[in-house]
Measured scan of single mutants.
Amino acid sequence: GKMTGIVKWFNADKGFGFITPDDGSKDVFVHFSAIQNDGYKSLDEGQKVSFTIESGAKGPAAGNVTSL
């Protein structure tokens, strides 16, 4: 299901970062391709987001990332 969290950091040049889930679980990798907006796909440190957990090739990653 949907989770919420805070963006820990995001490197716009490399197109990835990490989200710290509100439930205290392990930080989740986020790739820019998972960001659900029409414009420039980037996130800001400290931004609140909702997301799902998808299993990627390198382990769990955030999917369906939407800013709240």
Rank of each mutant, 00 (worst) to 15 (best):
D27C: 05
T20F: 06
V7F: 02
K26S: 15
D22P: 03
V49R: 00
I35T: 03
A61E: 15
N37F: 13
Q36E: 12
G1F: 09
S55C: 07
F51Q: 00
F32M: 11
A34W: 03
D22H: 09
F18Y: 09
Q36F: 09
T66S: 11
F51V: 01
Q47M: 13
K8M: 04
H31L: 05
A12R: 15
E45N: 14
D44Q: 15
G15Q: 04
Q36V: 14
I53L: 14
F10N: 00
E54N: 08
K58E: 09
W9H: 04
A61F: 15
K2Y: 15
D44C: 09
D38S: 11
A12K: 15
K8S: 07
V28M: 06
K48G: 07
G46A: 05
D13M: 14
G24Y: 06
S25W: 06
V49E: 00
P60W: 07
D38Q: 11
E54Y: 11
M3V: 12
I35K: 02
F16Y: 15
F32D: 03
L43C: 03
I19D: 00
S25Q: 10
T20D: 03
G1H: 06
P21Y: 07
D27W: 04
D23N: 12
K26G: 12
K48F: 09
V65F: 01
W9R: 04
N37S: 14
A34T: 07
H31C: 04
I6K: 12
D27R: 05
L68S: 09
Y40F: 11
Q36D: 13
D23R: 04
V28L: 13
G39S: 09
A62I: 02
T66M: 11
W9P: 00
N37H: 14
M3E: 06
V49G: 00
D22E: 08
F29A: 03
D27P: 08
G59H: 07
G59Q: 06
T52A: 05
T4L: 11
E54R: 05
V7L: 03
E54C: 05
G1P: 08
G15L: 03
K58N: 14
G1V: 08
K26D: 12
D38M: 11
P21K: 03
V7K: 00
N37P: 08
T52H: 08
V7N: 00
F29R: 03
Q47C: 04
K26Y: 10
G46L: 05
K41S: 09
H31Y: 06
S42K: 15
N37K: 14
H31P: 03
F51E: 00
A61I: 14
D27I: 06
L43T: 02
A34V: 11
A57Y: 12
V28S: 02
L68K: 06
G56V: 07
S67N: 12
G5L: 01
G1M: 10
F29T: 02
Y40A: 12
K14M: 11
K14Q: 10
A62T: 02
I35H: 03
K41D: 07
I19L: 08
I19H: 00
G46D: 04
K26L: 11
G24T: 05
G56K: 09
D13F: 15
T66P: 01
A61Q: 15
A57R: 14
G56F: 09
S67L: 15
V28T: 03
D38P: 13
T4A: 06
L68E: 10
D38H: 12
N64Q: 12
V28F: 04
I19W: 00
K8T: 07
L43K: 01
K48C: 07
N11Q: 07
G1I: 09
L68D: 09
V30M: 06
V7Q: 00
